[in-house]
Write a protein that binds this DNA or RNA. Structure first.
Lengths: 212, 212
DNA sequence: CGGGTAGCCTACTTGCCGGTAACTTACGAT
DNA sequence: ATCGTAAGTTACCGGCAAGTAGGCTACCCG
């Protein structure tokens, strides 16, 4: 068998990130023990602590890395083209990530450890929705729609793609990526193109609203 | 002060379900201890075990009850009316549930305990998507679309509504239910009415049907 | 009043897991 | 070769939470 190999710091760190990702993906945060991570890496517990300080440190490092990867893909995808092309690009990028990085996708999709709640929105997907929401907000204002409903669409689209991604991955990807993307894009795009006008469009007369 | 009141079995059981739901909703499964549940109910640990056997038993009972409640609302909502009305009804029913049963909604939205995976799809929402998918499947076949893509739409719609619900609840429901529902329905309905035809359609069915 | 039973409690055991202290070993540079 | 350092180890602590054994008490019913 492979000799008990000594790795350099960065190498070991990278390996632990890899192993941790796989474990967190399959078992979830709570059900994964540091000992397990260490064992799977052929190393002992304190090594993990040496690199990441605490369990949450390891988890945070993994999530951050995956988040960066996903955001990178999405950013590239919406860098240019018509609005429709960018939308389609975003969907394809998201599904590609789900396909090519199943473990990372699983980690991002699962619940976070309870303590790391920031600002009340705990799940990572919510973060993504927030970013999309910011983009939409500007876009909506520009187009004369009520920007307050932008988050509704942002969350709707993110949730749509996410859930489809989860199903698609869990089901062993029964359809091709292009196939799935096509339908999702169609569903989302049509809705966006037919935004209903509403009483509360920002016209000259802001109407008195009832309860929130 | 309230006397150390002795409750009957069913009463205590109901109370524990209530307390447990609240706790699981706010802390999540792992972070909630049976002792906490017992304390909050003004009772000691073994009582909980007497009623539910194990922690998972309590959790399962709570989830099942909430799931039933949600399904009940949805079923009522889609019992009659045009397709569009039923769709709208389903969305409204879902959001109403999120609004009126925030704790239950939180429980259903969170991750389940790792061990209770059934059929590979662990999350409760996936169950819902499955049911919707079955309905769509039949509907798609009838309308001449490829039924294999039905789950895509089912998951997309369920994910859409779910994520919007999560956001809406987490944000303290900044918009009215009707307002949110209107936009979500618009987004979903438009997409459904313009299903893209595709190479793999079964049968000579060229064009999307019209209906009022 | 006197039992029986249903509801409830105290007081454990057990095992796991996050985290740490203190020691050991490989290895390259001088 | 040897010394310094980075890499890795064993062996422990402390705490918490799941689950249980066995005893107590209120209340109903005759």
């Amino acid at each position: 068998m492979t000799k008990k190999q000594r790795l350099t710091g960065p190498q070991r760190r990278a390996q632990l990130l890899e192993v941790g990702r796989e474990l967190f993906a399959s078992r979830g945060y709570e059900a994964t023990s540091i000992e397990e991570v260490a064992a799977q890496a052929g190393v002992s517990k304190p090594i993990v602590y040496e690199h990441f300080g605490a369990k949450e440190g390891l988890y945070a490092a993994i999530v951050e890395r995956e988040m960066d990867g996903l955001v990178q893909r999405m950013s590239d995808a919406i860098a240019q083209g018509s609005a429709r092309e960018r939308f389609e690009g975003a969907v394809v990028a998201f599904l590609s990530y789900a396909k090519e990085e199943p473990a990372g996708f699983a980690v991002l999709t699962r619940d976070s450890p309870t303590s790391s709640a920031r600002r009340g929105l705990t799940r990572v997907i919510d973060d993504l929705a927030q970013r999309v929401g910011d983009i939409f907000q500007a876009e909506f204002s520009r187009a004369g729609f009520n920007p307050k409903v932008a988050p509704v669409y942002a969350n709707a689209l993110v949730g749509m793609v996410t859930q489809v991604g989860v199903w698609w991955a869990a089901e062993g990807r029964p359809l091709s990526l292009e196939h799935v993307a096509k339908h999702v894009v169609a569903l989302g795009w049509m809705g966006l193109r037919h935004l209903p006008s509403e009483p509360a469009v920002q016209g000259p007369r802001p109407k008195g609203r009832h309860k929130g």
